[in-house]
Design a binder for these strands. Structure first.
Length: 454
DNA sequence: GTTGAGCGTT
């Protein structure tokens, strides 16, 4: 009598392990399961018929096959609530499992800009203590003891820091900006909080993606390019969580998607500062100036060229959050001349130069022919000066009508970071509250050029 | 008694 095996994985993202069934009754012993997956209390699987998740019957410490038998499916472990990677305990659990390899989540002093003159340290502390434990506050003063209008705060909890960085702050009737100070930029390894999700199908909605990925950590944004392009971007509050998912395949509504790093590959031609920023502010990933750091509408203005920031300013540093009110005056979400166009407008994919609007294309562009893609022209100018920022893969490409899998193309382009530069951080306008998700959807729908990674 | 982009020990 030969021993049968079934495939069991800890989670949807993990590789299954074959576990032996009991020869006599074709059940799986709970002890067998727990031998490989300590803490597991049961099994579940996705019903191929209706894609629903089904639980496996457990009786007398034995897991019984579904009615139709084990049937070659992959089964997934069920853990008790406290062991489960679910939103509430995500930070703890994930940091134990996946994120532990990264050690970048340390708090730093944060600069608070735009304080009212009257705001003192006590008021500052009282305000920030509503977010979490505050280790230090300072209000910088001149010789006469007058506030200089800025200060510093330090939290004990990194998630608190992320949360505080992710929104505007109304302190003593002033809108204030909290950022990682310049002096700290580069000292912090910053991991992108946005991931590229390839192989998406068209029926995967924002809600589907959010619902799925939020079990790993708070999702602050899901962007699905329209028209359909077989990939999406999911932004997490915590870049560590984003990082932890990269390289994995996940099954969402029966669709196998691939999560990869949305950060452009370091190609040395993009003026990216992952650290050690001297003075360049473009594409600076350091210092927590991650996308979620830009929320005000003034950042939109910034993002879309309102301040002419020389192309690809991904840093919140030059945002203009001061003196609240009237912040929408220059709101130009559809400025066709803004950088960040996927294919045109000079193709400034986070380029050093803001004057790259010529016909030379972009040095960052990969050889599309090597991809089997016939661009039929200079891809750096696909959309020319027009406002079509929704150029799907396939428009202007593949003029020979070769069969193309948009997901593969997207993934390939992703490898070059080609899709970078199409989106700024402006889509993360959380506003002053803590509900990033709800507020973003509409904005995402309206914002055309949101397909770059950072 | 005024100011409003910035970057910290004094």
């Amino acid at each position: 009598m030969s021993v049968e095996y079934i495939q069991v994985a800890e989670d949807y993202s993990d590789e299954p392990i074959e576990l032996p069934l009991e020869p006599d009754d074709n059940t799986l012993l709970l002890s067998t399961l727990q031998g490989q997956f300590p803490g597991a209390t049961g099994l579940k699987y996705r019903n191929p018929e209706n894609k629903a998740i089904r639980g496996i019957r457990l009786n007398d410490l034995k897991l019984h096959a579904p009615g139709c038998g084990w049937d070659g499916l992959v089964y997934y472990c069920v853990f008790p609530k406290e062991n489960k990677r679910k939103s509430d305990d995500v930070m703890e659990n994930v940091s134990k499992s996946k994120v532990s390899k990264c050690q970048t989540n340390k708090c730093t002093d944060l600069i608070v800009l735009g304080l009212a003159w009257k705001t003192n340290e006590q008021a500052l502390r009282e305000y920030f203590e509503t977010f979490g434990e505050v280790l230090m506050v300072q209000v910088k003063k001149d010789a006469k003891g007058q506030s200089k209008g800025f200060g510093f705060v330090r939290f004990s909890n990194y998630e608190t820091q992320l949360r505080v960085l992710g929104q505007r702050h109304h302190i003593d009737s002033r809108w204030c900006e909290v950022k990682v100070p310049n002096s700290k930029e580069g000292q912090i390894q910053q991991v992108p909080c946005k991931v590229f999700v390839g192989r998406c199908t068209e029926d995967l909605t924002q809600e589907d993606l959010k619902e799925y990925f939020c079990k790993f950590g708070e999702v602050t944004d899901v962007f699905i390019p329209r028209p359909f392009r077989a990939f999406s971007f999911v932004t997490f509050l915590d870049p560590e969580i984003a990082q932890s998912l990269c390289g994995e395949d996940h099954i969402i509504k029966g669709v196998s998607v691939h999560v990869s790093n949305a950060a452009p590959k370091a190609d040395g031609n993009r003026n990216q500062n992952y650290g050690n920023s001297m003075n360049s502010r473009s594409q600076n990933y350091a210092g927590n100036s991650a996308p979620y750091n830009n929320f005000s509408d003034s950042n939109y203005r910034n993002e879309f060229g309102g301040r002419g920031s020389g192309g690809g300013n991904s840093n919140g540093s030059s945002s203009n959050m001061s003196s609240g009110g009237g912040q929408n005056s220059n709101f130009m979400p559809n400025n066709p001349n803004s950088g960040g166009n996927a294919w045109g407008s000079g193709g400034n994919n986070g380029n050093n130069s803001s004057s790259n609007n010529n016909n030379r294309g972009n040095l960052d562009m990969p050889n599309l022919q090597a991809l089997g893609i016939n661009s039929g022209g200079n891809p750096g100018n696909q959309s020319g000066s027009g406002g079509n920022m929704n150029n799907p893969l396939g428009v202007g490409l593949n003029a020979l009508n070769l069969p193309m899998n948009p997901a593969i193309v997207a993934a390939a382009l992703n490898q070059w970071g080609l899709l970078n530069g199409m989106q700024g951080q402006g889509n993360n306008d959380q506003g002053p509250n803590n509900q990033p998700w709800n507020q973003q959807q509409q904005r995402n729908q309206n914002a055309p050029d949101k397909t770059n990674f950072m």
